[in-house]
Each structure stands twice: as C-alpha cells, then as structure tokens.
Design a protein around this nucleic acid. Sequence first.
DNA 1: ATTACTATAGCTCGAGTAG
DNA 2: TCTACTCGAGCTATAGTAA
Lengths: 237, 237
Amino acid sequence: MTVSHSKWKSMKEELEALLVILVLARFGAVNRYIRISTRKIANVLGFSQQSSSRIMRKIAERGYISRKVTPKGEEVKITEKGLSIILKYYEELGRVLKTVSPETIVIRGIVTTGLGEGRYYLMLNGYIKQFREKLGFKPYPGTLNLKLKNLEDVVKKARLLKTPGIIIEGFSNGIRTYGRVKAFKARINDLTDDVAVVLPERTSHGFDILEIIAPFNIRERLGLKDGDEVTVTVYLQ
Amino acid sequence: MTVSHSKWKSMKEELEALLVILVLARFGAVNRYIRISTRKIANVLGFSQQSSSRIMRKIAERGYISRKVTPKGEEVKITEKGLSIILKYYEELGRVLKTVSPETIVIRGIVTTGLGEGRYYLMLNGYIKQFREKLGFKPYPGTLNLKLKNLEDVVKKARLLKTPGIIIEGFSNGIRTYGRVKAFKARINDLTDDVAVVLPERTSHGFDILEIIAPFNIRERLGLKDGDEVTVTVYLQ
DNA sequence: ATTACTATAGCTCGAGTAG
DNA sequence: TCTACTCGAGCTATAGTAA
C-alpha cells in the first residue's frame, strides 16, 4: 500500500475526497445517511456552494460517498471505499510515525561465559559481510552471553522472536549451510549504542541466553566480568 | 480572495505537503538529511521537475521541511512541524476509524491452493478444543485460502487485524509453542453461515491471503476450484 | 430552501531556458 | 547534471442564474 506509484492528480483528488470525508464523518455520515446541504459543507470547508456541489458529485462518482439528492438537500453516507482511503492513509502515517519513535524493550541479564561458539560463527565471511551492511559494523570475534534469570526477561526475548528485526540471511560455503540470524540494534547499560542482539534461527542455546555482538570487546570496554548484571535496551525498529 | 477560500486552500496545501513528506519519509528523511533531486521526487509523485521545485520551495517556506540546495542537488529533512502534521492527520483519521463499527465487512478473494499448513495446525488439539468452544464447531482439517487481489480488500483485512474478534489462545505441547489466532465468524457467497476467518498472529502468509475454516470441506460443499471468486461476509461481533 | 449549469476570472502546471 | 525563473495553455473555482 504505497502512495508512490499513484499519479499526482489522482492523489490530490483522493486527498480532496479525504478532506470532505473527514467533514462528513464529523457529522456522523459513517454508518448511516445524514441530511446535509452543499452550502453547509462549503461553509465548513471554506469554499463556495458551487464548488461544494461539484466536489460532492465528483466524489460520489468515484465511489467514496453515496448520495441521494432532493430539492430539499441531500442525504450522504460514506461508502466502504471512502472508509478504505481513511484506513490507507492512517496506516501510511502510522508507518512513518513508528520510524520516528522506535519502541524499545529493556532486558536484564547476567554476564556468562559461553561455549566460544559465537567466536567461531562471527568469523565467517558470509555473516561478517551482512553485519557490516545491515548493522553498520564488523563484529569483534566473540559474543557477550547473558543469562536471563527472570521469566519476565525470557518472555521479552520471546517477543523479539516475533518482531521482524534485521534479517541476516543464511548461506552455504559448499560444505555445510549456516542458518538465518535475526538481529536488533541495542544499547548496554545506557552507555554504548553500537551493539546488537543476535538471535540465530538454529541455536544450541537455551531460551534463557541472550547473545550480543559489538564492533569491540564488550567485556573490556565496559569492564564486565561473569556474574555482573547488565541492562540491554533493544531497539525494535 | 475571501477568508473562507483561503481556508480550503490552506487545507489542500497542507495535504499536498503531507504527500511530499510521506515520500521523503519513505526515502528516510525522518531523522536526518537525505540527498534527493527535484526530478526524483517529481518522478515518484508523477509531476514535472518544475512543479516539484515549486512545491519543495513552498513546503520549505511553510516550515514542513528543511532543505539545503546546492548545484548538485538538495539535502532534505522533515522538520518537527512536518512530523506534527503527520501526527495531526493520524489522530484525526484514527478518531474517524474508531467511530466506524459496521457489523460486517465484505471481502472478495480468489480461491487459491495453500501450502497445506492449515491442515497441520487445525489438527492440533490445543486449537480444536478452543474452536469448538468459541466458534461452535470442529474444523474440517484444511483451510480455504483466498488471494485478495484488490487493495480495497487487503485494507479490509487490515481492519480485521485491528478489530478485537474471537481470540484462540496459543499453547505449548512441551516441544514447541503455537501462537494466538484471531477468528471471526463469517459467511461465504451468502450461502453458508458456519465458517470462520482465521488470522494467526504468527503467520507465514502474505497480507493478501485470507484463511477460512469451516466444519466441512468448503471446496466440496460450494463446488469451488482454484481461480473462483468468492465473497466473504465477516461478522465483526 | 435546495442542486447544479454556464461563463469567466484566476490560478496552476510544465516547456523552454538561465544560472 | 542540478534548481528555479518566465509565461502561455489549460484547468479550477465562483458569480450569476435556472430548475
């Protein structure tokens, strides 16, 4: 549902219809016919009765409203098509607003020593190239493993599994295949913004482990040791 | 020029700005400057480079965007004011959508063969028990997949996602978890009343597929084959 | 009261073109 | 290339008025 492939004239006409529909909606023409005159609409929107008449005819012809004209006035109702353009723009605007104020999830975990698997995977070129492109950095070879001790935090991790995120595609090196990895940009202890949570699709970790990568050695940079508690703020978009 | 005329004019100009802002937002001009030419914008929106130039100047003058013009192109960023009109219309449209509570939505779609996933899920006891309780029937193992070919119908499906509906809770069988499913009672081709539209929260389908379940084999009962168009009347309450 | 047709004033758009 | 100016063709809005 994009605006981009429509043409300017039809888009402007659609918006003209949208303005009129918004006024009609305010008068209650959503699920029933309302009695209203072209002059009334003209006064509310600020144009002439003649223009109002012309616009109402055009909008009705395009199927946005349904109208019954009588010498006493007209009865108007917004059609499904009329409502659908409201929804169309509502969603388009919502999409833009989402990018403005990204939602975050805050997860708490305990620094743990992993099996060194992360170090192995992160050195594979098939992943490194994509991390560079999609996350904007070449990861330090080694993940920071956090153990999620509270059920609450495990549930939050589960939410990440359902969120689209940044997809790092799987690949094959001729010998074996490596699965997709989902990533989210993140922040640790509100100090550094350049890290990312990685969720491999095929993982050997339990549900209670969160893996984090960064362009540097996180333990060194933040002076972390096993058992320390850290707060990870995950950017969902 | 009368006062009232300028009201309509300013509203139209505001919406004109909104369209351009939406395009700029799609190019990422939300929190940073992007490099884009008037011709590019003109091509996307379907008008001339000259009009594009004129509109960009007007919008910048009105404070919706901030731009730096160079002989090589221009750098553009949506301003706070630009974002505020997005929010303004988002709220206005949302207000109208809230008042919309039709009892039914009619969606048209083309019968398509799915991946057989539906068949698998519907046979899980965790779901079957709830379908019986909440929809009043034990579903025939297999969903009818409809491809929504018109934008209008896709928009209607999107409306279902926002409507409460009948919630079929997710569950776990010890091995893996199965997500929540939203359902709506429905009617196909005005013939049968006993079907339901199902919207899994975690779905592998695109936005343009509608899944329908029933206590019987819908294809057999209604004599449907791939490519047939059907009308689904969805009961929202 | 209404809606809506006709004629015209005024505005918008884009081809040509400069910087 | 880029942005943006000029100006005429065409489109849009409204005054006057009919039904």
